[in-house]
Amino acid sequence: MFLQLLISGLSFGSLYALIALAMVIIYKTSEVPNFSQGEMAMISTFVAYTLLGASGQSFTISFIGALIFAAILGVFLEFVFLRRAKDPNILSLILITLGFEMILYGFAGWKWGADQRDLPFPVSDFDIINLGPAVLSYLNIATLLITLILMFILFVFFKYSKVGIAMKATQQNAMAARINGIRTNRILSITWALSSLIGAVAGILLAPIATLDPNLMLDPLLKGFASAVLGGMTSLVGAALGGYILGIIENLFGGYVSIEFKSVVAFMIIVLVLCFKPSGLFARHYVRRV
């Protein structure tokens, strides 16, 4: 049983890690926790669903279409709403993302209703490999692999690509970056596009295990935040590890302690981290300035 819990923990964990990564990328550049992250991913998943079903496109095309949609949605939120904030303090930025979240949630409910749908996914959760005491489904494998590949691309992108380095510069000191000829506004747009895209991948990978309805991402959103907090909110590696750790802890708790209260684990972890190690497990603490 332990092995089985570990496997599904890792599988869920990779989805949490993706959502956490998407949040951390935004948080690092704009210091906004993006509360519409979940609904952006949910809508993008519905777009994939619509492309697959109504328009009868192949999975690959629908997948890519959904990602392009997600990227545009991210840019839209940043460009149309956040950039317009007159007094961009934390509270108003959080409120804007919450407002956007409500709009997307309402739109999805209106367009697709409360019916639970299935997203046809090319890899099944029922084709399995026997590993002695535990089983590993093809979907598990696909999730793990896609996540790892995506993370690898991300790390390489941030480390070596020109845009990635420009992003880092913008994060650290937007003014200095601008003086050095980096178009920070464009970098900001790219950041939001990238973040939204990563979130959408998580949504599409989650849909076959969960059911596709407007509430798809409500819970995972919290898990994503918990993972990001665990990783310190500003560290990409931390967020990824945080996701895996949360997935595993949560599944072990569900298996050995109480399946009923499994979803309270994320909240408890947030509280414990904030109480005992507010800077997260993997980030350095900083001193406030007076």
Binding site: I103, L104, G106, W110, A114, P214
Partner: peptide, 11 residues
């Protein structure tokens, strides 16, 4: 899904 319109308006 018609009632969901109120979420949109609140947002």
């Amino acid at each position: 899904g018609f009632p969901n319109i109120s979420s949109i308006i609140f947002g």
